[in-house]
């Protein structure tokens, strides 16, 4: 049992990638279907905002969980899906911001600037999106080569900060019921704990 799925063939990985790609588009497809059926409820803009925000944070959380899962299960191939999942987090983040910009604010720049500078939850959420941009831009193999593994990894550690910012953004906008932000916070803490444990192990091992 332990050895099952230890290695996957390239073909299996390609197929899995295609499957994950389609699954990751499902939230957007569902929103569009509901939209065309005029079935987004009484406040469709709020619903789209909430939904795209939820999926941004969900994909960030899944991306964050890949490395700890790989460490725990010794399944190296898990890492092969990390880039795509991270890019989907960025994709939904951009959709989320576009919804705010176009549908919610309708390009009311004065108010948007005020929101970003004065409303802490928007400041934090906007910063998270800005910080995600260089990660998306440098996600290609060519950029990894140009930056060099060490620098690239250091840059991409920003994802901790980004996910934490996403959780705070959600936490601060909720009126009273913080149960959902709490779940995201707990998952993030769990991922970080596992990573910290293995980082310590590695240090101990290399010192020995």
């Amino acid at each position: 049992m332990l050895d099952r799925f230890k290695r996957l063939s390239e073909r299996t990985i390609t197929r899995l990638k295609a499957l994950i790609f389609l699954l990751a588009l499902w939230p957007l497809a569902k929103l569009m279907i509901l939209g065309f059926q005029d079935d987004l409820g009484a406040n469709p803009i709020e619903k789209i905002l909430r939904n795209t925000g939820f999926w941004t944070l969900t994909f960030l959380t899944i991306t964050m969980a890949i490395t700890p899962l790989r460490q725990l299960t010794q399944r190296v191939w898990l890492g092969r899906f990390r880039r795509m999942l991270g890019l989907f987090a960025f994709f939904y983040g951009v959709l989320h911001f576009s919804t705010y910009l176009v549908l919610d604010q309708f390009f009311d720049w004065a108010n948007i600037l005020k929101d970003i500078s004065k409303r802490p939850y928007i400041t934090v959420g906007f910063s998270a999106l800005v910080l995600m941009t260089p990660l998306a831009v440098t996600s290609t193999d060519a950029m990894l080569k140009r930056l060099g593994g060490k620098r690239w990894r250091r840059l991409h550690r920003l994802v901790y900060l980004i996910t934490a910012a996403g959780v705070i953004h959600f936490w601060w906008l909720v009126k009273k019921d913080i149960s959902e932000p709490l779940i995201f916070a707990a998952l993030l803490a769990l991922s970080l704990t596992v990573r910290a444990y293995y980082a310590r192990q590695n240090r101990v091992n290399s010192a020995a």
Binding site: N43, I45, E46, N111, K114, R119, P120, Y121, W172, L173
Partner: peptide, 8 residues
């Protein structure tokens, strides 16, 4: 946490 100047 948010503006009350406008409403939808």
């Amino acid at each position: 946490r948010w503006s009350q100047a406008k409403e939808r």
